[in-house]
Design a protein around this nucleic acid. Structure first.
Length: 161
DNA sequence: GCCAACGTTGGC
DNA sequence: GCCAACGTTGGC
């Protein structure tokens, strides 16, 4: 029996990389590089091809879940960690023992209207959602199947479960 | 192993 | 721009 699809949420500042940037990327796909947090990295390592991802705009007005992406390549070493010129350069990491990974995600849907943080907070079914926890800063995090279904319904999404 | 100092995230 | 919350670093 194949392992069932899992659900995730990734954050991005739209001024840095927005859902529209993802939609315009070659093959509507991008490498999710630059993650420099162990917990977030470990979640990326758990991702498998076909997993679905909520795309969240942080530091936005308003902060909101704005669309859906799909994992199209599982975790592999993030090249920016070896690049001295990169803002994400990590001098402690070596190609022989890479510390940071990335995955590739592909654009699936941009919601007609994003689901704002306020609306998420107002939904009782999302009470336990990691994103809504005070002080939660994880940029890659798991989403339960019921949270997934709830957010997609709120968004009037075309993507199903 | 403790913890102060520092850096970052992200809502407001 | 502020600042609370959190993660990491490094001296001891």
């Amino acid at each position: 029996m194949p392992q069932s699809r899992r659900y995730w949420l990734v954050k991005s500042e739209p001024t840095v990389f927005s859902i529209h940037d993802l939609a315009k990327s070659p093959k509507r796909t991008t490498g999710w590089d630059g993650v420099r947090n162990y917990q977030a990295r470990n979640f990326m390592r758990e991702m498998t091809v076909g997993d679905l991802v909520l795309f969240y705009h942080s530091n936005a007005d308003p902060p909101a879940v704005v669309g859906v992406a799909e994992v199209v390549r599982p975790a592999y070493p993030d090249d920016t960690q070896f690049d001295r010129a990169s803002h994400h350069y990590d001098p402690a990491s070596t190609p022989a023992a890479p510390r940071w990974d990335m995955v590739d995600i592909k654009h699936r849907e941009t919601f007609q209207a994003g689901v704002s943080l306020d609306r998420l907070r107002g939904e009782p079914k999302l009470k336990g959602m990691l994103l809504l926890r005070k002080g939660s800063r994880l940029s890659v995090q798991p989403v339960t199947e019921s949270e997934w279904a709830t957010v997609l319904k709120m968004a009037g999404a075309k993507t199903g479960t």
